[in-house]
Amino acid sequence: MKLVTRSQLGWPASAAPTQTSTRGVKVHYEGTEVSTRLLADHDECIAEWKAIRRSHLANKQENYSDVAYNYAACPHGYLLEGRGIGRRTGANGNQDLNRAHYAILGLVGSSGLVVPTDAMLAAIRDGIELLRAHGAGQEIKGHRDGYATSCPGPSLYAWVQKGAPRPAGTGGSTSTPSKPSTGSKAPAFPGRQYFKAGANNRYVTQLGKQLVKKGFGRHYASGPGPRWTEADRRNVRDFQLSKKDLRGDADGYPGPLTWKLLFS
């Protein structure tokens, strides 16, 4: 688990009301546009989380005592502490529903960055398991379960409905940091012909998802897909420029070495 604590964020102890148990955890999303810049730069995730807290503290109508959520999860797999353990959520405004479930926010929205990465899902799962170890019940729900809202959006809610499974290869410990796999083998490079203007195939989707996973998805407007676009090319070029062995041929089109390094 990669945890960023309140002290690391420069925040004092939460002033939210204490609570020792809940029926479980509810998953949330931002419900507004979230910039795809978060995919490329973890500092943008921290800035986003701090901005959410500032906006909540400035909300005089709800009169928040702190950021509304117990935790947030970012595209890079970090669990960001909010109210934390043993604090009542404020995710339902000032309603009694706050007593029923803790709240974890995925840093995705209704436009821009809308599809959670596997690393984000793993971080949400880390938060669920951490809260379960400190009094949360077994329920895993979306915000819309019991409250009239579209939150947590279609992608996160579909995952919640499946039981919020931990993505394969993302670890499962709530007490030690998850370690990257060292023995995985890169899938075979399918060929350059699959990555050119007009291409529409599963390898483009596979490429795009891996770029996002590696933190090189900032040019996507709504996540990777099967159709080769300029956003794919620009994201590949960003990855190539980040690798010394690829900089001399950073044209944005994957070859065997780009593919191997991307999936290593």
Rank of each mutant, 00 (worst) to 15 (best):
V67D: 00
P224N: 13
Q138Y: 03
L246I: 07
I85K: 13
T229A: 14
R218V: 10
A47Y: 05
C151H: 15
R125C: 14
I52L: 12
L257W: 02
G106E: 12
R54P: 00
A186M: 07
T149I: 07
T117D: 14
V115E: 06
N235L: 04
G255F: 10
H56P: 00
G109M: 11
R237C: 14
K260H: 05
A103H: 13
G215P: 00
A73N: 04
V115K: 14
G217Q: 09
R237D: 05
R125A: 13
A72Q: 05
K213H: 14
W11T: 05
G86R: 12
G84K: 15
Y69Q: 09
K213N: 12
G208P: 12
Q8H: 02
N235R: 08
P190E: 00
R192Q: 13
R144S: 10
H134T: 13
R227S: 10
V115H: 07
Y29M: 12
R83Y: 04
Y29L: 11
L131A: 01
A136I: 05
N98K: 09
Y102C: 03
A164V: 05
L97Q: 11
S55K: 13
A73Q: 01
V204Y: 05
G31C: 07
K260L: 06
D249W: 04
S150H: 06
L121P: 01
A133S: 15
G217P: 12
L113Y: 11
G112T: 15
A119H: 09
F216I: 09
L262A: 07
G24R: 13
L246M: 04
A250D: 04
E230Y: 10
K196R: 15
R125N: 15
R192L: 08
G127Q: 04
S181M: 12
L38G: 00
S178D: 08
A133V: 06
L80R: 02
A100K: 14
K26M: 07
L207M: 01
T89P: 06
L261R: 06
N70G: 04
E139A: 14
S35L: 08
T36L: 13
G77H: 05
T258R: 01
V115N: 10
T229S: 15
T170C: 02
A123N: 08
S178G: 05
Q161L: 12
Q138V: 11
A250P: 04
Y147W: 14
G137R: 09
R87F: 00
G90F: 02
N201Q: 08
G172A: 06
I52A: 10
L9H: 00
A231V: 08
P12I: 06
A91T: 06
H28P: 04
T174A: 06
G77W: 07
A16Y: 02
R202I: 07
Y71N: 02
T36K: 07
R23L: 03
A199H: 08
S110L: 14
A68Q: 07
L38F: 05
S173E: 01
Y157G: 00
T258V: 05
L97G: 01
V34N: 03
W49R: 02
G183D: 10
R37Y: 03
T205Q: 11
G191N: 13
